[in-house]
Amino acid sequence: MDNLILTFDSTFDGFLSAVHHAVKNRVRPVCICPQGEVQTMINCSIMPIDTHMQNAELVRRTLCDAAGYDSLKRAYYTYLSSAEDAIMASYTYILYALKYGKSTANYMSNADIYRAYQLEKKVMYEADRMKGFLRFAVMEGGVEYAPMEPENDILALLMPHFADRLKSVPFVIHDLLRQKAGVCSRGSWFITDASDLTVPSLAADEVTYRKLWKTFYDAICIRERTNLKLQTQMMPKKYRKHMTEHQL
């Protein structure tokens, strides 16, 4: 029998549509991957799946009813991970969640279920960290702009947090690695392609505030307790590239 590969349009809804197809037609694809990232193998057939909102919604609702909202969240977070097996891990997890229902958490000794937990934790952890490490710059005209290069695709997880926090300020979060940008104004937001984003120049007082922040950052350290290893452990160097205090 052929090895079946399902492809989708690299949105979560597209992925859920592919899952819907697999479950409904009782097929077991060897791989589900976004279009354009397909690695063909011997004896395989590739089947592109169109995104159907109703199908995606059906999978969402079925999963929630069967195993609770947490499991949908877990499948989503796992899907966002940058690990190579992320999408398949999410798919396998959904199958197990549909099978075991609310007691899925009791099967942590199952390697596939454990993998989903692991990936979810990593994504969640990075999103939590980025909520702190993200740095906005106030641009001319009052728009705030924050560049970032996270390991996982966490943009969609950050947007609600900052949309609530900076309700009165329009802002843009730019994922430089994936060329995506989250745009928010008055609390409502959307994510868009950002390959042709032009960044306006800095507002007049921006540099002053950056310097003040650096001043504070240096003053708050207790020199007698210097512990660079702990600092690096808590704030890995990969995140420092876009942090104001490490740029000046």
Binding site: D128, R129, K131, G132, F133, H161, D164, R165, L166, K167, S168, V169, Y217, I220, C221, I222, R223, R225, T226, N227, L228, K229, L230, Q231, Q233, M234, M235, M243, E245
Partner: peptide, 19 residues
């Protein structure tokens, strides 16, 4: 107008003493 608080707390940076 501006600001919220998450129950889990949030660290924004770490100084050279690791705090």
């Amino acid at each position: 107008i501006i600001g919220n608080t998450a129950p889990s707390g949030c660290c924004h940076s770490f100084s050279e003493d690791g705090r």
